[in-house]
Design a protein around this nucleic acid. Structure first.
Length: 500
RNA sequence: GCCCCUGUCGUCUAGCCCGGCCUAGGACAUCGCCCUUUCAAGGCGGCAACACGGGUUCGAAUCCCGUCGGGGGCGCCA
């Protein structure tokens, strides 16, 4: 493969807010495609909308993309041979090709006012036609246009579009697509304020950056014919297009905040693993040919196939994301789990910033035990309350009922009796005592253990007791901001609470 | 309204291009059972779909037409 055949793709977001999962999915697909084909992935920032673009958003964007595990070969932060990679820094380029089109008579100045255009559009809409620019300024000569410009009149530049014919292109995911030119008016390529319009800037940039495959959202399909016309007017080679379907919320409307978290940043803060998010995002419109669905980035790179991408919109399913997150968490080692869990535990005030080796060691075990079944790391402090909290008064209804049964009272009376004189406690002692109670009372299984669980945790469910007891005993000897009560302390409290 | 795209279990999808192998497969969710002397996890099993109507054909989820539903677009936004 020589350099000219090299696949080049790009992700071109506008820095107008936090990066959304829909865009993240587009970025991911571009990245997967480029990495699999040994191509080049370009990051380009489309900041021509001065009103909405903010520099800090560009930083967030880069941060989010990097967190996801994506990297780029060229971009505003890493440079490259086809820069600059910010549209706001490419203005001369846009002007150069606009003048060329003007000179060649392929574009012209338009002096129609916004109001004028708006009323024409409304008229078309009410008559049931597609709003198409009338072409009113088409015949104004360049010389005259320049004279008007000199007098201070403002003008935009439009591309001349043939009145009839068909624009056809082969979309890598959607197959052949065609548009009737009658329904496409002369698009503005440079606004009267001198800024390039989106449809124009992308073409200039994609072409000049040698982009071979344009992979983007479905919302761009109807822009594609205009862009193709521009490529033709400039005599440039067309890239291959691939339009990805949209990502929807549960009610089949565009995914928005009201459906839950939607920005990459938010998922990160919630404690969703980047690999899990990528794994899930890749399943929005694509599926691996066979087998395991829990896939790491390298595996996605290996398996990804644009030809297998679905044409219909996909609904974002938080349940499946959470399932994948749990699967990816399981793949992590204890050290890594602790590292990721710590910020959440610190924020919840459960642990200090500085930890003794003994605390670290204990926390590692605790995280390992409690992380099971947790959807995301932000749910961990809640799980930790099993260890850090013991408040019989706050027991829920289920726990109360368990403890109130006749057999439960018997079990607990005996248990409290047998632990009264104890100075220390551990799982072996617990097992011996429960064995004795079983013998004396004949109570066993669920009836025996469930009340004891409630007595020790003030909850109806939680860790297995053979894991719970050693963990609490060890934890109780450590100095945490909130002290962990030992089993014996718990037994004493529950005893007085139940007046047994 | 007009243009473009799209329509398989509740959800993501396989199959569709190249009709028969589809009594439509997998995953999430859900339900049940097993395991664990509780819960969860795990294992096993169940429920559950070719939008509808016409063709074409010996035979259609697969091809054609129409209807209906969903999405996107129709900016001097990107």
């Amino acid at each position: 493969m020589n350099a000219e055949d090299k696949i080049r793709v790009r992700f071109a977001p506008s820095p107008t807010g936090y990066i959304h999962v829909g865009n993240a999915r587009t970025a991911l697909f571009n990245w997967l495609f480029s990495r699999q084909k040994g191509g080049v992935f370009v990051l380009r920032v489309e900041d021509t909308d001065i009103e909405r673009s903010r520099e800090e958003y560009e930083r967030n964007l880069i941060q989010d993309l990097r967190w996801l595990g994506l990297d780029w070969d060229e971009g505003p932060d890493v440079g490259g041979n086809f820069g600059p990679y910010r549209q706001s820094e490419r203005l001369e380029l846009y002007h150069k090709y606009a003048s060329q089109l003007l000179e060649e008579g392929k574009a012209y100045y338009c002096f129609c006012t916004a109001e004028e255009l708006e009323s024409q559009r409304q008229a078309a809409l009410t008559e049931g036609r597609m709003p198409v620019y009338s072409g009113k300024c088409r015949n104004i000569s360049l010389d005259e246009a320049r004279r008007r410009l000199d007098t201070g009149q403002e003008g935009a530049i439009r591309l001349k579009v043939p009145d009839e014919g068909l624009v056809r292109f082969e979309d890598l995911v959607r197959g052949p697509v065609e548009f009737d030119l009658k329904l496409i008016g002369d698009p503005i390529i440079v606004r009267s304020n001198g800024m390039p319009a989106y449809n124009y800037a992308v073409v200039i940039d994609d072409a000049l950056m040698n982009i071979t495959h344009v992979i983007r959202g479905e919302d761009h399909v109807s822009n594609t014919p205009r862009q193709i016309l521009l490529y033709r007017a400039l005599g440039w080679k067309l890239p291959v297009f691939a339009h990805l379907s949209m990502v929807m919320g549960k009610d089949n409307t565009r995914l928005s905040k009201r459906h839950g978290a939607t920005s990459v940043d938010q998922f990160r803060r919630d404690g969703i693993l980047a690999e899990a998010l990528c794994n899930y995002l890749s399943f929005l419109g694509w599926s691996p040919p066979e087998g395991n669905e829990v896939l790491r980035l390298e595996e996605l790179v290996r398996l990804f196939d644009l030809g297998r991408v679905s044409r219909s919109a996909a609904i974002f399913d938080y349940e499946k994301l959470h399932w994948l997150n749990r699967q990816h968490i399981k793949l992590l080692g204890p050290e890594k789990k602790l590292e990721l869990a710590l910020p959440y535990l610190q924020e919840a005030g459960l642990v200090d910033k500085e930890l003794s080796p003994a605390q670290q060691d204990w926390l590692k075990k605790a995280v390992e035990a409690l992380i099971e079944g947790v959807d995301k790391f932000s749910g961990l402090p809640q799980k930790f309350s099993l260890l850090f909290e013991f408040e019989p008064e706050k027991m829920d209804e289920e726990a109360r009922q368990i403890i109130q049964a006749d057999s439960a009272r018997k079990v607990l009376t005996a248990f409290i009796q047998k632990t009264k004189e104890l100075k220390e406690f551990n799982y072996e002692i617990f097992a011996t005592i429960t064995g004795a109670i079983k013998k004396e009372t004949g109570i066993k299984g669920r009836d025996l253990f469930h009340p004891l669980r409630v007595a020790l945790t003030a909850r109806a469910s939680g860790l297995e007791l053979d894991k719970f007891i050693p963990l609490v005993e060890e934890g109780a000897r450590l100095a945490f901001p909130r002290k962990i009560k030992s089993c014996l302390e718990r037994i004493r409290e529950i005893s007085s609470f139940l007046q047994l």
